[in-house]
């Protein structure tokens, strides 16, 4: 089969992705360190964690705006749109491919093209990560950075408490997403191929 090179990831997207990736990793470790820190085993000193977390949080938030504006100005945004109808079927097809078809050497049910950069699972999970998890983590993060903005009490439970809860749950889901995102990216004939393409911008099809 002839090797095609598709230019899927423009420069702005790669720069955003790279900065966002670094920020998310730092946010994850500093967040874990603050939440589960112990006097005897601090993963990262508390004060350092707070400063780093605040800094990376702001950078990632600015990055998120860049991503939204970029999607609006370019046609990158269409890759995150999906129809609910038939979603289950498409999910099933893709999951079956990862679970069995891939090992049998079957062709991809949703081959990558310029029009369809993501398979249905990616489309939905990326859309949820970027349009649900990220805004929630950013808004709750702004709330924690400026607690005076937060409603004092909601049904007798402290507003900061609830905001912190939302922030850490969203943070967890993003970390969970990252783990699966990183692994799924390695699925293919060459485990490193997808990692290379997000740096070079070119996707080599099989």
């Amino acid at each position: 089969m002839e090797n095609h090179k598709l230019y899927l990831y423009p420069v702005w997207l790669r720069v955003w992705h790279g900065i966002n990736a670094i920020c998310i990793i730092i946010l994850m470790f500093t967040g874990l360190s603050m939440q589960y820190g112990n006097i005897d085993y601090p993963l990262i000193p508390f004060k350092t964690s707070v400063s780093l977390h605040n800094f990376c949080g702001v950078v990632a938030s600015v990055g998120f705006i860049v991503f939204i504006v970029g999607n609006f100005l370019s046609d990158n945004g269409i890759h995150y749109r999906f129809k609910i109808r038939g979603l289950y079927k498409r999910f099933y097809k893709q999951i079956m491919y990862y679970a069995s078809g891939y090992f049998k050497g079957e062709p991809k049910p949703y081959p990558i093209s310029e029009e369809f950069k993501f398979n249905p699972l990616q489309r939905v999970s990326y859309a949820i990560a970027m349009y649900v998890l990220m805004p929630l983590v950013i808004f709750s993060g702004i709330g924690l950075l400026y607690p005076e903005l937060i409603v004092e009490k909601i049904f007798n439970i402290g507003g900061v408490q609830l905001t912190a809860l939302l922030h850490s749950i969203m943070g967890f889901f993003i970390a969970f997403f990252l783990l699966i995102h990183l692994y799924v990216a390695s699925i293919g004939k060459n485990p490193l191929r997808n990692y290379k393409s997000i740096i070079s911008g070119y996707h080599e099809s099989d």
Partner: peptide
Amino acid sequence: LNEAYVIGANRNIYL
């Protein structure tokens, strides 16, 4: 302890 939230000290065991 509704009013209190202290990063690192408040952890929800179920979560």
